[in-house]
Amino acid sequence: MNENGAAGVADLTATLRRGGYLAGRGLATAVYVALSLRRPLLLEGEPGVGKTEIAKVLADVLGRDLIRLQCYEGIDTNQALYEWDYSRQLLHIRALSEQKLVDEAAVEKLFGPSFLLERPLLQAVRAGDRAVLLIDEIDRADDEFEAFLLEMLSDFQITIPEVGTIIAASAPLVVLTSNRTRELHDALKRRCLYHWIDYPSLEREVEIVMVRRPEVSAALARKVVAAVHRLRELDLAKPPGVAETIDWASTLDFLGETDLTADTADVTLGSVLKDRDDMELARDNLDELTSGR
């Protein structure tokens, strides 16, 4: 990377930090290149490591609109692109019929902008570089929907038969996230820059807690982070992410606790673990989790 690129990465890292997000050099570099080259960025990693959060923070610090498409099994193009407001169209037709004003021109107006419901992808195309488009948990969508995204990510244009083709004046910043519940196709990956976000080191996670929750004492933050790192070493169904670490520290601080003991951990485990079997396993290891070693 040239000197200007290195300086740009450093500036972006500092900007993200001011927004409350501590990005490692690799992630900051990937975001900087995605911004500079107008390439989609695919972020993979375990749940709760900050994949979705960085899109939110980028929208905030860059002064852009955040447009979020939450993926799920069965999502289709209508829910992602656009829909016609059929209820308003029917009411409009009824009103015109009562006034005997129904003609070809009136019917054509039914498929105009006032009856078009824009969904996230169309909103992003219209907004262009004034937006950050977050396509969240793309791995939850079906293969067919993933294939549909390929053209969208290549050309940033959408064709509406009744309206015509809408082309983005400039590409939005696109962030895709995946928890790897299934493997994504190579065709999608080739269209994106890629970065894997891992769990942070203990020192970095303490720093993250302190940045996101400055009211929490450094001593309590360190105890909580150390306990979370020990939890991740257990055979848990759903290991806690950084988001859960922040929640646990915040909960303890709210309750006026200044230390993490076996007793305080026991009554607040619901802040960090979301599975009954995981909680039982953690309770069997409370003394070790809170030992401070």
Rank of each mutant, 00 (worst) to 15 (best):
D103Y: 07
D103L: 01
E104V: 05
E104K: 06
A105C: 04
A106R: 04
A106H: 14
V107I: 15
V107D: 13
V107H: 13
V107W: 13
E108Y: 12
L110D: 03
L110A: 04
L110Q: 07
L110C: 06
F111K: 10
G112E: 15
G112V: 10
G112I: 08
P113V: 01
P113F: 10
S114E: 14
S114G: 00
F115T: 00
F115V: 02
F115A: 06
L116K: 01
L117E: 06
L117M: 14
L117G: 06
L117I: 15
E118R: 14
E118D: 10
E118Y: 11
R119C: 03
L121I: 06
L122T: 15
L122N: 11
L122R: 08
L122W: 11
Q123G: 02
Q123L: 09
Q123H: 09
Q123W: 08
Q123D: 11
Q123M: 14
A124V: 02
A124H: 09
V125C: 05
R126V: 15
R126H: 10
R126S: 12
A127Y: 01
A127G: 11
A127Q: 11
A127K: 09
A127I: 05
A127C: 11
G128D: 08
G128C: 03
G128F: 08
G128S: 07
D129W: 04
R130Y: 10
R130F: 09
R130K: 13
A131C: 12
A131Q: 10
A131L: 04
A131Y: 01
V132Y: 06
V132K: 14
L133H: 08
L133N: 13
L133M: 09
L134P: 08
L134R: 14
L134E: 04
I135K: 06
I135W: 02
I135Q: 02
I135N: 03
D136Q: 06
D136G: 03
D136P: 07
D136V: 05
E137S: 11
I138Y: 01
I138P: 05
I138N: 03
D139H: 09
D139L: 12
R140W: 02
R140K: 14
A141C: 04
A141H: 04
D142G: 12
D142R: 00
D142A: 03
D142Q: 00
D143N: 01
E144P: 10
E144W: 07
E144F: 07
F145C: 08
F145M: 04
F145A: 05
E146Y: 03
E146V: 09
E146F: 01
E146I: 02
E146P: 15
A147C: 03
A147L: 04
A147R: 10
F148G: 02
F148C: 00
F148D: 01
F148I: 11
F148Y: 08
L149D: 05
L150S: 03
L150T: 07
L150H: 08
E151L: 06
M152R: 05
L153F: 06
L153P: 12
S154L: 06
S154E: 15
S154M: 07
D155E: 13
D155A: 14
D155F: 14
F156G: 01
F156V: 05
Q157P: 02
